[in-house]
Computed example of a mutant assay.
Amino acid sequence: MKRAAIILAALSLVLAGCTTTDSDSAVADQTRDQDLLVSQGLAGMDARDIIDELDQQALADRPTDLIASVRTDQLILSDQSQEVALDLPENLTYVSIAPYLNQTHDCFYHSLTTCRGELGNEQIKVKITDEASGEVLVNEETTTFDNGFVGFWLPDNAEGLIEINHGGHTGAVDFSTTDDGATCVTDLRLT
């Protein structure tokens, strides 16, 4: 009986050590995550703030040592040595759209620091409609960012149509904010 108590006590110490090690590892990971955010001037910001900041940033001010990829449920930030994943706000997906007249690029997950569209700083009219409900999610005149994109926070699991007008040219394309939907829309040609 005494031997069993000693074994249980030793086992408790070992298990406690494992818990401490896991906890220490999580703290170290959080510290590294914060180091990346601090080094990029993004400390204290959540995923939504970072996305809004980076997508709207002037091209000349964009960091060259940071990759920021918008997924349907996370923002993935990485530099030469580490990667940080931040959850997007619950029930929202960020969709960035680059309408074009003559040239575009293939894209699925929007890169906030490297994607560049043709029509930077241009006035456009945007209408986004959820096909299932018929609800108009966006209906506004806006200006594309310096990178040629314009971004919107849309409800998760929506599917429908994006329509854009610019200088007498119009175009439309389907969108989806389901788990397998694109966050980077670069196939909306204005004709």
Rank of each mutant, 00 (worst) to 15 (best):
K127R: 13
T129W: 01
C115F: 10
D106P: 11
A47V: 09
V38A: 07
D33M: 00
L161N: 14
Y109Q: 13
D79A: 05
Y94F: 09
D79Y: 05
A43Q: 11
A98C: 02
T143M: 11
T114L: 12
E140P: 11
E122G: 08
S78F: 09
E118F: 05
T144G: 03
S96G: 12
N147D: 09
D146L: 04
L36V: 00
Q103P: 13
K125S: 15
C107I: 06
W153R: 03
Q34P: 04
V84T: 07
D156W: 09
V95R: 02
D156M: 12
H105C: 10
L92N: 06
S25F: 15
F152D: 02
T72R: 10
D49A: 13
L36Q: 00
S39Y: 02
V138W: 04
A47M: 06
L37A: 02
A132Q: 11
C115V: 02
E118A: 01
K127Y: 07
K125W: 14
V150E: 03
D65M: 01
A158M: 08
E141K: 10
E90Y: 12
V70Q: 00
G148D: 01
D35C: 03
D79W: 04
Q80A: 15
T113R: 04
L54M: 02
Y109P: 09
H110N: 11
Q82I: 07
N102P: 08
P89A: 02
S25I: 14
T114G: 08
F152T: 01
I164V: 15
T64I: 12
Q34S: 10
F149M: 03
I67F: 14
A158R: 13
N121W: 09
D87M: 07
E90Q: 13
R32E: 12
L59S: 13
D49N: 10
Q30N: 13
L54D: 00
K127D: 04
F149N: 07
S23W: 15
E118V: 04
H169A: 12
Q123S: 14
F145N: 14
N147P: 09
T144H: 08
G134N: 06
E53M: 08
L86Q: 07
T31Y: 12
Q57I: 10
E53Y: 12
C107E: 10
N102I: 10
L101G: 10
A85Y: 07
I124Q: 05
A85T: 12
N165V: 14
V70K: 00
A85R: 13
G117R: 03
W153T: 05
V126M: 03
A28P: 08
T104I: 08
D52K: 05
V136W: 05
Y94V: 01
L77H: 09
R32T: 13
L59H: 08
G117Y: 03
R32D: 11
G148N: 07
Q74G: 05
E163R: 09
E159P: 08
I76Y: 12
A98N: 01
D106M: 12
G134L: 04
S23G: 15
V138E: 04
G168F: 01
S78A: 11
G151P: 02
T129H: 01
P63H: 06
H105T: 15
V126A: 03
A132M: 10
Q40D: 00
S78R: 14
I124H: 09
G120T: 02
S39A: 08
N102C: 04
G160V: 00
Y109N: 15
A85V: 08
G167W: 04
Y109A: 11
I128E: 00
A28V: 06
A85D: 09
D46L: 03
